[in-house]
Write a protein that binds this DNA or RNA. Structure first.
Ligand SMILES: [Mn+2]
Ligand SMILES: [Mn+2]
Ligand SMILES: [Mn+2]
Ligand SMILES: [Mn+2]
Lengths: 224, 224
DNA sequence: TACAAAATTTAGACTGCTCTAAAAATTTGT
DNA sequence: ACAAATTTTTAGAGCAGTCTAAATTTTGTA
């Protein structure tokens, strides 16, 4: 029942969870995990055997892995903690959105159900983290976000900026430097066929060009 | 210069720091550390060698250990983090003072100078933790507390309750159950010679008896 | 379909931290 | 002063998590 799950095991489970949700809900390969965690493939294989032993994953050698229900619950709890702590760091301690990820990587492993419940309440039971990612509730339920990258819409018009695909410090800082933050209104005024760049007005400000690379990492909803 | 100090090593340094301050600033023995951390003496010897190697302690086999300046700075930083997090848990998340120690034992190892500086500011740069223990400042300076256990005063009169010696959950809960909290005024009305118990009025409430054991774990200052 | 390339696992080793059992050093008591 | 008791260290081992090198399995393509 009450198997102890180490910090390292939590990180593997979170990696498998994240990787399996990148596209569909598919199986995750050893090399994918190895790349994601910066460990060697042999190390990953070793850990996969231990996680399977603990019934946290379904593992068939050479065939990739999937989380069991127990593994999924564990992973999603880590994600919940990570995102709640990020909200704390930004909302309460005034960190910038590009500064919080590394600290949250540590805080996500603090083990106390009471703590996380009280933190959630203290923060006003937020539904999204500072990057627009949904925060799973205490039961592991997650708002499915139907947002799509800006460049996939292929139409002019009004959008709301609700999240990012890319979470790197440099990308987040770039968005800050062009004056873009979660919740802003984007008006796409032109789309250039040849390179998929677009001319965009942020809120009521001057228009500027977004490269396809930028537009592909900005998640938007069509503005009602 | 920038030697990495593991969570385990931090706990050893904190233990040595705490034990060396119990009475005077004396050397700490292998068995003291072993008792304090619930590790075997052989395990401690092993770790002492590694800490000495990293210049965090002065270690002479069979003669006990002392922190180096670097070791002391590391230990005191952990203590600072522990106590700041306890303030956070009590002041912001409404935990009771007997519920926070175990969680702070985890949080004290989160590694981010920026985080601790912002947390300190967020909490209003507190000078004491929920148990009355002083919080070292960012430079490792600590208010020396001149408080003395109630039973050592041996005189009637008015005192202020400023801290506890014993930090166990059961003792803290006992104090709560008799309605005693940090900052309360204690009026010692009687002292019984034969068992050193005393009759005490808390603030303006009814008087009650404190056993010597209770009185020996309550730190007070004479009320001005 | 066969075979080369890529992915994955196995084998063997190392570090950090822990243990037990035994040896050595120190302290204590008479 | 010295034997007994206590403390501390040494020796040898195990587990978790990591690595490199080699073997094995799967995949993609000629
Ligand atoms: Mn993050
Ligand atoms: Mn995030
Ligand atoms: Mn504490
Ligand atoms: Mn405390």
């Amino acid at each position: 029942m009450c198997v102890i799950i180490s910090l390292t095991e939590e990180n593997y489970l979170k990696a498998i969870y994240t990787l399996s949700h990148l596209i569909d809900e598919s199986e995750v390969s050893t090399n994918q995990i190895s790349d994601h965690l910066n460990n060697k493939a042999a190390t990953v294989t070793d850990m996969l055997k231990r996680l399977a032993e603990k019934k946290l994953i379904h593992y068939i050698p050479y065939q990739g892995v999937k989380l069991t229900e127990k593994g999924r619950q564990t992973a999603i709890k880590v994600v919940r903690k990570h995102r709640l702590w990020e909200v704390f760091l930004v909302d309460k301690l005034q960190f910038k959105w590009d500064e919080v990820h590394e600290i949250a990587e540590q805080l996500e492993h603090i083990n106390s159900d009471e703590l996380i419940q009280r933190l959630d309440k203290f923060l006003g039971k937020p539904k999204f983290d500072p990057h627009g990612d949904p925060i799973p509730d205490a039961n592991g339920q997650l708002n499915i976000v139907k947002a799509i990258p800006l460049n996939q819409h292929k139409i002019k018009g009004m959008f709301t900026f609700v999240g990012v695909c890319e979470h790197s410090k440099t990308f987040l800082q770039h968005l800050t430097s062009i004056g873009l933050k979660i919740g802003d209104t984007l008006k796409v005024e032109e789309i250039n066929e040849f390179d998929n760049s677009c001319k965009v007005k942020i809120n009521k400000n001057n228009s500027q060009f977004f490269s396809n690379k930028v537009a592909s990492n900005i998640l938007v909803e069509i503005k009602k």
